[in-house]
């Protein structure tokens, strides 16, 4: 199997026949998927298709019962916890925006900056000029420069979504896992978010989980349809939406 993986040059993430059940309910059932370096990928699927569980498995929050999750051609992610996968370069945005509400926007980004995450380093941490500049840059990117000193808890829903994306970017990850970023956003914000994610892709791999088909269309990328914990169809949005099975799953029998 690992030979097969090695054969896939430029693979960022490789899931092979992953299974996971909860009390008999098969949340992930033989899921296989390949994400290449710099790829932007949308994952869609009805409720209960296993999208969030898939992210839990990739990030080490949940252990699969069976199957392999290979990172950058050689590291097995199934043995690692969240902090380790984060340190490898996987950033995750939650479905419900999760920022440090009692810290300022700036501190949120400061805490997310790539660097030594140890106890000692944190105690002795002094912010460097380059890091300050990076924070400025990110604030600009997620349009929160004016909110820099505000507490994150006081931001609007859409602003929190962006702050969280900004925090992800501050980690300098190789792969971003983004769970429903457009939820609760206005149309204009949604479009801007799609644009932002398209910009990020190329340098980094991005996996976006989304319900909103307009948003997926705006992403303009390869789409994977999940159903009952496995891949139902894969390809361009037009290709998968023409798939009879996909139509049945989405429109009901």
């Amino acid at each position: 199997m690992s030979d097969e993986v090695r054969g896939l040059k430029g693979t960022q993430l490789y899931l092979n026949d992953v299974h996971r059940s909860f009390d008999g309910y098969k949340a992930i059932n033989g899921l296989s998927m390949v994400i290449t370096e710099g790829e932007l990928r949308a994952v869609v699927g009805p409720n209960g298709a296993g999208k969030t569980t898939m992210l839990d498995i990739i990030t080490g929050k949940t252990r699969p019962d069976q199957g392999r999750v290979i990172w950058a051609e050689h590291t097995d992610l199934t043995k690692l916890d969240e902090a380790s996968t984060a340190r490898l370069g996987i950033g995750r945005k939650f479905q419900k925006p999760t920022v440090f509400e009692t810290h300022t926007v700036e501190d949120n980004l400061m805490l997310s900056l790539a660097g030594d995450r140890g106890v000692k380093a944190s105690l002795l941490f002094r912010i460097a000029k380059a890091q300050k500049a990076r924070i400025d840059e990110l604030l600009e990117l997620v349009r929160l420069t004016s909110a820099r000193h505000r507490l994150a808890g006081s931001l609007s829903h859409g602003q929190k979504q962006w702050l969280e994306i900004g925090m992800l970017l501050a980690q300098e990850p190789k792969l971003l896992l983004v769970d429903e970023p457009a939820a609760g956003m206005t149309d204009a914000e949604t479009m801007r978010t799609a644009e932002l994610l398209r910009d990020i892709a190329g340098k980094r791999s991005v996996v976006v989980i989304e319900h909103d088909m307009d948003f997926v269309r705006a992403l303009d990328c390869k789409v994977t349809v999940l159903h009952r914990g496995a891949v139902l169809a894969e390809g361009s949005l037009d290709h998968v939406s023409a798939n009879q099975e996909v139509i049945e799953v989405y429109l009901g029998r």
Binding site: T59, K61, D81, E82, A83, A86, R87, G91, R92, F94, T98, V99, F100, E101, T102, H103, L111, S112, R117, G118, S122, M167, Q171
Partner: peptide, 16 residues
């Protein structure tokens, strides 16, 4: 404080 308010966020940022 991050741990207090959003423990999972802290983990996913790579802090043990």
């Amino acid at each position: 404080v991050g741990v207090r308010d959003a423990e999972s966020r802290t983990r996913f940022l790579g802090y043990r």
